[in-house]
């Protein structure tokens, strides 16, 4: 696998992280070395192996359908960068 600068741009866009050209070169070099290490997995035969998503073999617990939360808007919005009339404000979204 060889990672290109275009790949870096693409994933930086997907991850919504701005990266300038200088950073991109450094990120490219470091990610290339990380993926060289990761590529050791290629050699492993994993046919018939069940993927392991969780550290414990368990099933999800279920909560009773009851309303347990009260309005904590004032509390939660104290740390918000921008609010108005109880709404979170973001740059205008054009659809």
């Amino acid at each position: 696998m060889s990672l290109t600068l275009q790949d870096i741009e693409r994933i930086a866009w997907l991850a919504r992280i701005e990266i300038d050209a200088r950073e991109a070169a450094d990120v490219h070099a470091k990610l290339t070395s990380i993926f060289t290490m990761i590529d050791a997995l290629d050699a492993i035969d994993t046919s018939g192996i069940e993927p392991m998503s969780h550290a414990q073999d368990m099933t999800t617990p279920l909560r009773d359908d009851r309303v347990t939360e009260s309005d904590r808007r004032a509390d939660f919005q104290r740390v918000a960068p921008a609010t108005e009339d109880g709404l979170y404000l973001v740059p205008r979204v054009i659809e």
Binding site: I17, L31, I34
Partner: peptide, 19 residues
């Protein structure tokens, strides 16, 4: 996100996004 996260965090987010 570019300003809020440091280099190592960004690196790992990018690796994770890629895989």
């Amino acid at each position: 996100r570019a300003e809020g996260f440091g280099a190592e965090v960004k690196r790992r987010i990018l690796v994770g996004t890629y895989v």
